[in-house]
Each structure stands twice: as C-alpha cells, then as structure tokens.
Nucleic acid binder design. Structure first.
Lengths: 85, 85, 85, 85
DNA sequence: ACGTTTGCGCTTTAGC
DNA sequence: GCTAAAGCGCAAACGT
C-alpha cells in the first residue's frame, strides 16, 4: 500500500535529474543560438575569428580589472585594513 | 550624405557582438541554475558525483558505452586486471 | 646606513615568490612532457582516451571503485537501467 | 615463436603508461615542493594568500599581453597583412 | 577539524 | 581529423 521510502527517494532523484536534463537542454539551445549569430555575421562579411578574439579580449580585460581590485583588497587585508567598498 | 558605409558596418558589428555577449550571459545563467540544482540535491542527501555519472550514462548510447568499456578492458588486460566486478 | 628591515623582508619575499615561479615552470614542463607521451602513443595507434581511463582506474583502489559503481547502479535503477553489461 | 603482435603491443602500451605514471609522480613531487615553499614563507611571517594573489596577477598580466598581441595579429590577418614578428 | 570556496587540470566540444 | 578554447569536476586552501 502506498510507496515505500525507497520509491519516494527514487522519485525525488528522478525529479532532480529531470530538472538538470531540462536545463542542459536549454543551455545547448543557447549555444546553438550563439553559433547562429556567428554564422549570420559571417554571411554579412565579418571575420568571425577576429570577432571571437575581440569578445575574448573584452572578457579578459574585465577579469584583469576585477583581479587587480581583489589584489588590492588582499593587500589591505594583509595589513589589517578594512576594504569595505 | 549621412553615414558612411564604414560607420554602418561598425554599428552592425557592435550589434552582432552585443547579441553574442547577451547570449553568453544567458548561457552562464543556465549553468548557474544547474549548479543550484546539484546543490539542492546534495542538501537532500544525494551524491552529486553519482548523479553526474548517472546523467552521463543516460546520455550515452548503449553502443558507444559498450565500445568504450570493451576498449578499456582490453587495455586493463595488459595489466592483468579485469574490470568485471 | 645599511638596509632597513623592510627592504630585507622585501628581498626575502621576492626570493620566495621567485622560487615558487620556478617550481611552477618545472611543473608545467612535466605536464608538457606528459602531453608529448600521449601524442607519441596516439601516433602509434593507441586510443588516448582509453589510456587516460586506464590510468585513472589503476590509480583507484578496488574498494573505492566498487563503491562508486554500486552507487551508480543504485541511481540508474531509478530509471530501470542495469549497468551490468 | 617469439612474441605475437598482440603481446608486443601490450608491452608497448604498458611502457607508455609507465612513462606517464612516472611523470605524474614527478609532477606531484614538484607540487609538494611548492606547498613547502608556501609553508616556509608562512613560517617567516608572510601572508600566503597575498603571495598567491600576487603570483596569479603576474601570470594574468602576462596572459593579457600575449592575448593583445594575438588580437593585433588577428586584425592584421583579417586585412590580409602579414604579421611576421 | 570541517565545511565552504576558489584555482587548477582535464574533458569535451567547436572551429578550421 | 586535428588543434585550440571553453566548461566542468575535483582537490587543495582558506576561514570558521
């Protein structure tokens, strides 16, 4: 009669996994969209390699800025100075 | 006169890059959601490593899985190890 | 008027960092060597993916390996799939 | 008489894997050395977190410089200009 | 000492 | 098919 605990746990597990699979599907869809944009840009005569390099550089620059800020905070912390910003 | 072709092209390029950056942002958001689900599952007592392995296995076709295992067993045999446990 | 303690400390710090950087360089060199061996094996017709899997299995103790497989099978059972093939 | 091809191949495989395992052992040794240097620095009163941040920043700066150069070359190539440097 | 969080290495995937 | 880059998993490191 009714479900045993083991089955309930199994159902919950299946639910978690189902959610993840759905999200992975969405993620793949987004990746496909990105491919499409690159293809469209290429069809309009743009150099996709240069575009990718540009995007990468923009991302890296942001990272460096964040890292420098973090580094400063680390130094301040090392000297017991609060770094509330 | 108005805009020269070069400027229009630049605007179009910036638009393409902007679209890609937005999509990459969305993709990252989905990835974060997936991480959250794993975290929630972990909080409910599930082993996330085994969950990941499960999802991987479900994704793999039976044929591919068997081929991979067969080759691994062939290589392990060189060390006198059987993986049939 | 000799060196102040601050400078000596700075020199010592630079030395520590230099040692670490050198060691990291060596470590990267070893990693490159490993890549080379895989490349050589591939050139000789071996499947590097299976080789990596083999090395991983050899590293794992039998007990741990069996525990992992048992848990995976438990999870797969929720989907009515047996991994005994 | 002599070895059959299969055995010879097995021996070669074992050799490749053995070489990789040795290199991985060396790599681990280097990693341990790095840990030791950090421990020694810490024992001398230095802040290891700040040290790690410093080393990371130095590495990242180098990466950015290389990426910028690569980006320039990509642009030059996109305009059909040779980038021999 | 443990749990959390970040960095590093590997795996996989996409482009050429 | 190969090379390179991005994403992910794991393990060590920090803070509590």
């Amino acid at each position: 009669m009714g479900e045993v605990g083991g089955n309930a746990a199994q159902e919950q597990l299946k639910l978690f996994i189902s959610r993840i699979q759905n999200l992975e599907g969405e993620k793949k869809g987004i990746a496909d969209d990105i491919r499409d944009v690159y293809a469209e840009a290429k069809a309009n005569g743009y150099d996709t390699k240069a575009m990718r390099a540009t995007i990468r550089e923009l991302k890296l620059s942001t990272q460096v800025r964040q890292e420098q800020k973090a580094l400063l905070n680390t130094y301040l912390a090392a000297f017991g100075i609060s770094d509330d910003d």
